[in-house]
Design a protein around this nucleic acid. Sequence first.
DNA 1: ATCAGTTATTTTGCATTCATTTTTTGTCCT
DNA 2: AGGACAAAAAATGAATGCAAAATAACTGAT
Lengths: 245, 245
Amino acid sequence: MKSTIPDTGVPITPPTGNGGDRQEASLHGETLLRLRDYVVEGNIPEGGRVPERQLCEMLGISRTPLREALKVLAAEGLIELLPNRGARVRQLSQRDLEELFDVMAGLESLAGRLACEAITDAEITAIEQLHYEMYGHYLHRDMHGYFQANQRIHESIVAAARNETLKTAYANFAGRIRRVRYSANFARKRQRWAEAMREHEAVLDALRRRAASELSDILFQHLRNKRTAAIEHLTEPREDAPASP
Amino acid sequence: MKSTIPDTGVPITPPTGNGGDRQEASLHGETLLRLRDYVVEGNIPEGGRVPERQLCEMLGISRTPLREALKVLAAEGLIELLPNRGARVRQLSQRDLEELFDVMAGLESLAGRLACEAITDAEITAIEQLHYEMYGHYLHRDMHGYFQANQRIHESIVAAARNETLKTAYANFAGRIRRVRYSANFARKRQRWAEAMREHEAVLDALRRRAASELSDILFQHLRNKRTAAIEHLTEPREDAPASP
DNA sequence: ATCAGTTATTTTGCATTCATTTTTTGTCCT
DNA sequence: AGGACAAAAAATGAATGCAAAATAACTGAT
């Protein structure tokens, strides 16, 4: 067999009890949730083949609901379906990444704008808390903690926009670049770290003043800078690694 | 039979020759395209049931590819699938519409911002042409022509953003509110018409100057105003109709 | 040994079939 | 008549089966 899925010999989650606390009546829905996570979490290498047969065994289901789920994932942009040649995990070109980051920037920019119309003082306080927490991680050079706090801040802004449609779209795009986002989060680029901290302070400032268009600009620029950092990181992947093996 | 699909007795498009000039290798892909158009064009009343069986006969296919297409359309937000109770054309609440308009506003706002970075003088000239054309329709009270020119202007801005991901997302959301958008395009509200013309002039002005954040603001506000007009139109549907039958 | 051509195996796409669930129809009772 | 219950019909969800396409394996020639 030439599949690219690491065969652990066990289903992704226990076959009977469903994995998380989510409930899904239909097998198709359940499969969709599990498969989406499985792909988003990077269990299959980019561009790797995804043989239906093997996934069926993995999930303990027949091909019908699996294929339905694959079609949906393809529509979401996570995988691509080549006619008669099966599904592959979508490989994102540099251009794809640039586009995705820009769309994310647009959505967050919008979220900020809308948030200014509806956000409560309590919500702002909560975001400030997250900001301080993030600052702590920054001081301790805790990349992972920093990343998580950062994510939660951005999610809080999206939540404050009070727009479920936006939230869903945001989650969808975030899923597509999740792997890259994490790994490319200016690993060891301390300069960019400091810069990002300042940008976040500007975000908070604009948010407190409910300055919608200003916040919109700041958020867009913030994500634009993140995009630049991410692309750079991918172009010159490891600045501390030896030049040759 | 209690379906809500008008039964014309003929397939949506001739079974053998495919409807448009689009080509799709798989039956599933073909079905998806045809069904999406069929729904977007409003052939099924809102909230109407979509019996698989009937659609299969209509399209001359078996249930498997049809069901795959339905799952995708559900993921796109055009229809909803109730467990064990089939597919319904998604009924948009007023809140849903508000959210959709806002997201569209965000995407167009982003498109304008990005367009400022890459748009050519020729493209701007083309948009100006469309603007004059639209002005002509405005003077002649030609709603349909006005609407189409308007659409093309917005599409041109999105195209000038040079972002396929954005373009796809935009098309998706546009599809969801297509019906409402058209019917609600301030029918007979001359005041709003004039206002929209002025806003479009401001758009062109900012575009010529490549004033990204300014254009972003203008486009957002423009769409916001459209949203208000659309919602109003739905709330008080016909201002010239008699109050009682 | 390498490569073209051919055959065998696997994989995909779609149709069909089977088991449940829902909806409708029919019947009986008040 | 009207409503509650039960049986029949239809629709959905998922598994299986089958034909076509693609991939892999094999053969033989250079």
